[in-house]
Design a protein around this nucleic acid. Sequence first.
DNA 1: CACCCTCTTGACCGCCGGGTCAAGGCGCCG
DNA 2: CGGCGCCTTGACCCGGCGGTCAAGAGGGTG
Lengths: 221, 221
Amino acid sequence: MTVSQSTGAAERRTHTEQGIERKQQLLDAAATLFSTKGYANTRIADICAAAGVAKGLVYWYFPTKEELFAELVRSMRLQLRRAQAAAMDPESDPLTRIRQGTEASVVFMAEHRAYFALLDVERAHDAGPELDAVLREGSDVYANDVIRLVRDAQSQGLVPDGDPRLYAVGVLGVVSSFSHALRNGSLDVDVEELAGFVGDWVVRALSGAVTGGQARPRRTR
Amino acid sequence: MTVSQSTGAAERRTHTEQGIERKQQLLDAAATLFSTKGYANTRIADICAAAGVAKGLVYWYFPTKEELFAELVRSMRLQLRRAQAAAMDPESDPLTRIRQGTEASVVFMAEHRAYFALLDVERAHDAGPELDAVLREGSDVYANDVIRLVRDAQSQGLVPDGDPRLYAVGVLGVVSSFSHALRNGSLDVDVEELAGFVGDWVVRALSGAVTGGQARPRRTR
DNA sequence: CACCCTCTTGACCGCCGGGTCAAGGCGCCG
DNA sequence: CGGCGCCTTGACCCGGCGGTCAAGAGGGTG
């Protein structure tokens, strides 16, 4: 493996305006292909064809196919985390915050299906052991977020006692399951409706109450 | 692609006792490797090394790497389905049956971690489009099982109205999430305990009641 | 013994795909 | 104008891996 030079492959010099744009084109093309055909089945040549550039160019912007993939995943996570943070009202109780984060995640994933499907690829560790590290590292962030919220909720009596880690697995799992189903299965439901359903589901599963957490004001676009 | 000869690749003649055994050895070795390193990263040579045989032998028992994988998945599904069926008491109400099936699934997957991890691989469609068909086909079976049970439960007022397909996605998703977590995350909980937790979770999520479905008699081994 | 059928081996092949590289266009600065 | 750094190209290289094959080893049967 090609060693991570000193600081960890943060070399590449300055990019011009155009360069940044081109790089983004490549990332977009790669995202679509990866999520459609999977990482292993996507050829560098495919990405180039989709972006309409020559093969060598990829290696101007990325040191390797793996690194390209990793960069995609990182940017994904950043976006998702922002969306969640924006959706959670700091004034609300923990259970409501979980619901908000859950619903925001569902909506976000629906709006970025192509990107988000990468998390499936992440699931299977078909991408090689080194990537595995980068990938798993990030999942923990979400888990810890949820664990913290569950603890708070438990201390307020909103959620019954029990290992918060287990609850967290349940919450995260159900979100990713519905995301997956919406993409691959033929769930042709309205996104807002689905988000509401998942939010309810999570709250029920956590609290055992049908009405836990404040119901969310349906967005009318 | 190599066409499925007439009936669908059901050629291979008679296997001797020894032959069947050898074939199973290969399947076992493959299962371990696939679930450890992923489909794409597992070399035929690896499988042979693990099984202690020469490379050519694989092609005596299987026409292709893909077919080997497909056979693994099929056998997995058969086993799981049997375990579920055995666990569900036909006398019980639908909600209880769902709980039983859920708990049995968790236990089963814990006892067959290596095998079961294949479903992760299944999740990501890194295995090529032809396989995708074989794979997806089978998931529907489970979904339909659950959908049927949810419908029954709804008609008895045990589960609130709502699209049964959505409920099914939730149930299946949560099981696979916990399975995944138990394998990859460091959830060092007792399997029986986990099964109970997941059973409770599903019942709560479905019914909104803390006590829905009969609690399961804890098995004391 | 002759024959056949299941099994096993390991050298070999051919292709596919990630990664390299020499060459060149283009715009900017001195 | 000359040189320099960013960007782009496409031919090329080469290692790895799925799959093939000719050659046998047992062992069972007539």
